[in-house]
């Protein structure tokens, strides 16, 4: 008897966890498929199947542009931060020099920075450089959170690779840059995919800088565009459209996360837990 009770209790807990995790997104999909007054009837199961909200949001002019902006910013941020981080991580993990520990601690400290603390100074810089209202301002600003994180994770990964792989190349007289590109890079694909994906998600989701440095509707990224979607009046919040837009920008992320599930978990924990 107690075994049965325990088993049932355990699976009830599992069911609760799954429901807790997926119900809100399920409900967003369900809402996005409703049209007209059906929106204001509460249903737990799908009753309607109308793509009107999706057509509405995709044909409203700027939203497809916002998606494109987000893709451009996120991809550029990932490419630049990975390139800078791979070489830096090599220096931090394989070469002994004075002040290495302090440098790593500084990098970790920057990743904990409250973004608001640099907002005023960055804003002045962005305006001075003429980057206000451009995507460059975002690419530049996002380095503050993607770079420390990628450097940290790649350093941890590179440190754990055996010494032997480098020795042969050193004996052959290969330059450090060649060693990074020819010896380490081919071994690092798993770590690069993980950190790249995490950096992509962080850049895709960022809101504060995107809200501050861009004020032009067609230059905005997706999170700000969704936050500012509004109806004809204060009272008429277009929930159907908002949910359709939300589903559109979230589904690619969820697909990526599910495909790279294991790698993401190992990447997240590499950043946070002592191995």
């Amino acid at each position: 008897m107690p075994y049965v009770v325990k088993r049932t209790g355990f699976y009830a807990l599992v069911a609760f966890i799954v429901l807790f995790s997926i119900f809100p997104f399920y409900y967003a999909i369900l809402t996005s498929l409703k049209s007209g007054t059906a929106l204001f009837q509460i249903n737990y199961l799908p009753v309607d199947f109308s793509l009107g909200n999706y057509e509405g949001v995709l044909s409203n002019g700027v939203f497809p542009l916002n998606i494109l902006n987000s893709v451009i910013v996120a991809v550029t941020v990932v490419a630049i931060s990975l390139f800078l981080a791979v070489t830096a991580a090599y220096a931090l993990s394989r070469i002994n020099f004075v002040g290495r520990g302090l440098l790593l601690l500084t990098i970790l400290a920057v990743s904990m920075f409250p973004q608001i603390a640099v907002l005023a100074g960055l804003f002045e810089m962005v305006r001075w450089a003429g980057l206000y209202n451009t995507l460059f301002s975002l690419v530049f600003a996002y380095m503050i959170f993607t770079l420390p994180f990628t450097v940290w994770v790649l350093t941890t990964f590179m440190r754990d690779l055996p010494v032997e792989i480098e020795e042969a190349a050193i004996v052959d007289g290969a330059s450090p840059f060649t060693i990074v590109m020819r010896v380490f890079l081919p071994l690092m694909w798993p770590a690069l995919v993980t950190t790249g994906l995490l950096a992509f998600i962080a850049a895709w989701n960022e809101f504060l800088f995107a809200l501050t440095f861009v004020s032009n509707n067609s230059t905005r990224t997706v999170p700000v565009a969704i936050a500012l979607l509004s109806g004809a009046s204060e009272q008429e919040i277009p929930w159907g459209t908002i949910m359709a837009a939300s589903v559109i920008v979230t589904v690619p992320l969820i697909v990526l996360v599910l495909i790279f599930q294991r790698k993401i978990i190992s990447g997240l924990t590499a950043g946070g837990v002592k191995g």
Partner: peptide
């Protein structure tokens, strides 16, 4: 996998979903 879903959803999207 299911547990990872809330983590992957942008904060703005979760705020809007829950607001609704």
């Amino acid at each position: 996998a299911a547990v990872l879903i809330p983590w992957a959803i942008p904060t703005i999207v979760s705020a809007k979903m829950w607001a609704w």
